[in-house]
Design a protein around this nucleic acid. Structure first.
Lengths: 233, 233
DNA sequence: CCGTTTCTGTTCGATAGCGAACATAAAAAT
DNA sequence: ATTTTTATGTTCGCTATCGAACAGAAACGG
């Protein structure tokens, strides 16, 4: 409390003195990659305000294939969609992709707060809105663009969200994210490496040339980046 | 006014007497297939409460390919996402796919009403929530399932939303919706026809066997159907 | 009625990605 | 140091889909 930078864009936007009192009710946690924040069809026990790292929303099919439908960094609160009420349950699970620091609050407590605080509600609705726009673009991207373009897009977005050029993820996990086979990711990553846009070793990808990688990515990267910027404008 | 069935689920859920007064401010319109409700990156001039027919949100890429990211029937209001405020613009256009009847209101008027009426706001937030859940499933489906499965899913959903087994759409438009080539749709439709699940002639598809078509569709149909049911529960 | 447009059927070569298998190599565990 | 686990590299046959072309058929508009 009293600190001027909480490293979460939503929390930062809360007006004082509400922000300090809200902050005092949050608990800081460090979650390793692989932690499941909540399962599909299951109301989360906590809400997390991410301050570093990444989490993904993943949809699975009954045959075990998966696709990421959204990646979350410091810009908002996860989950936001359940705050809109109702009985419907979400068809995705939420999982930590890169070691994550977050400030958490029991979910029912945030639900009450959503009803009580108009500034908080306002920010959360903006968050829902932006996420929905981003998701729309990704939905089309999943259909229209090939693995190499989507890999480039994902890496660039991950860099933007975490502020690091070093992405700690194996090709197997990237395959789950991109909804492709691991061998497809290996081939796509190999192609990007030959072009000297990235380098990698066992579970760690390094972005070497942001600009050229952008050219290798589909246009969805730019669209999504635009939507992540000025998240609460 | 005074009628108990407006054929739009959101309007039907509005409490009286607000509902009658709200209804009196709506204008009924009949829009032919192909009508653009609003363009990408453009704030709509009207909000439409659909009472029959279908509209699609479509994302386009710069090379002219397209994919549908959501289909809208009688269950809510289009657009709902812009009601959450903010400066961001949506990357999709909204187009009438099957001749549509709707009750419309100038969009700024609905924006004011969204601020003023708590029951209306409540319903709209539910609408946003469900649409977001549905979109998530479609985003994964676009990546993981093949054209024949997706075609079957789309036809079944269209049947559910419009209540008719006769879908007036050419294979070319279905290709735009499914994000595939027209020839791919022709092959997929031909396969479903050979299985006697559908029949068709020039711009009109007939669903012959709902149950078996369900078996030919991916599981996403069931998931999405579940989310369309009890839309405001 | 005839010409024009639009929709469907079909073919064909090219390509991306699947699905499975197996080899190698790097890290982690003991 | 040795074993075990996990990640990456590579190959291969197969399928779905692309992208383009062209023909026939159905609807439409004078």
């Amino acid at each position: 409390m009293g600190q001027s930078q909480l490293d979460n864009l939503l929390l930062d936007k809360l007006p004082q003195p509400y922000r300090d009192s809200f902050f005092s009710r949050l608990e800081e946690v460090l979650l390793p990659a692989g932690t499941v924040l909540y399962e599909a069809e299951e109301i989360p026990r906590y809400a997390w305000f991410i301050t570093s790292g990444l989490a993904s929303k993943m949809v699975s099919t009954s045959d075990g294939r998966t696709a990421e439908i959204g990646v979350w960094g410091r810009e908002g609160v996860v989950p936001c969609i359940y705050l809109l009420g109702g009985k419907a349950l979400c068809p995705w699970r939420c999982i930590v992709q890169m070691e994550m620091k977050a400030l958490r609050m029991p979910f029912p407590e945030l639900q009450r707060e959503f009803q009580l605080s108009e500034p908080l509600r306002h920010l959360i609705l903006r968050c829902v809105q932006r996420r929905s726009m981003i998701l729309s673009q990704i939905a089309a991207c999943n259909r229209l663009h090939d693995a190499e373009e989507r890999l480039a897009r994902w890496l660039l977005t991950a860099q933007d969200l975490t502020g690091t050029t070093s992405i700690s993820l194996s090709q197997g996990f990237l395959a789950d994210i991109l909804g492709a086979r691991r061998t497809t990711v290996t081939l796509a990553a190999g192609a990007l490496r030959r072009l000297k846009l990235i380098s990698y070793r066992r579970g760690r990808i390094q972005i070497l040339d942001h600009e050229k990688l952008k050219a290798a990515a589909c246009e969805c990267y730019g669209t999504v980046r635009g939507l992540f910027q000025n998240f609460y404008a």
